[in-house]
Amino acid sequence: MLPNIDLRIGNLVKALEQVILPALPASQRLARDQVRLVIGHLRMLGGQWKTALRYEEISFEELAALARDLAELVEEPQQRLLTSALKETATCDHSSIDALEDANKILGQAVDMTILGGEDHRPLSRAASEAVLEYALRHARRERIWFQANQLDPDRAELPSIASMLATA
């Protein structure tokens, strides 16, 4: 691929920073703010796009593991719901981000319904609660690492790099 994606992202940032932003009057604050956000998004995308597929794959594998754990810890009808979702997503195409996202939605809906316990709000056992919280902590941490370049995270200094996170996942 020539020009490659990194080069094109770099060109976009340069044009925005050196030509477009200086040409906007200071009074156009919203426009200037949005240009800065475009630059920020592009920089963040530059650090993410090569590993986005792997990121979604890890997200799917983690969620599938939670669904399997919960299926052993809950009763019917939640157990059947989880088993069905796991079966439906078992053969999802791991080379497609769209397919992985769709699979995550199917699994996620089954997990949500299990957590809420159906219409009679069936209680979650302590073990099931702990499984959800353990998964949720890893999920939240992964998201924080993935988006740390937005500099909104007050504790971003404690986060490892994306490469490090993916290597240990």
Binding site: D33, Q34, L37, V38, G40, H41, M44, L133, A136, L137, H139, A140, R141, R142, E143, R144, W146, F147, N150, L152, D153, P154, D155
Partner: peptide, 25 residues
């Protein structure tokens, strides 16, 4: 009119998710 602001702020959602886990525990 600010879709780009919304996706920028959305990228901070993980911060609140981790806070939820920590505080409920």
């Amino acid at each position: 009119h600010q879709d780009i602001v919304l996706t920028w702020l959305g990228s901070a959602g993980g911060v609140f998710l981790e806070q939820l886990v920590t505080m409920m525990r």
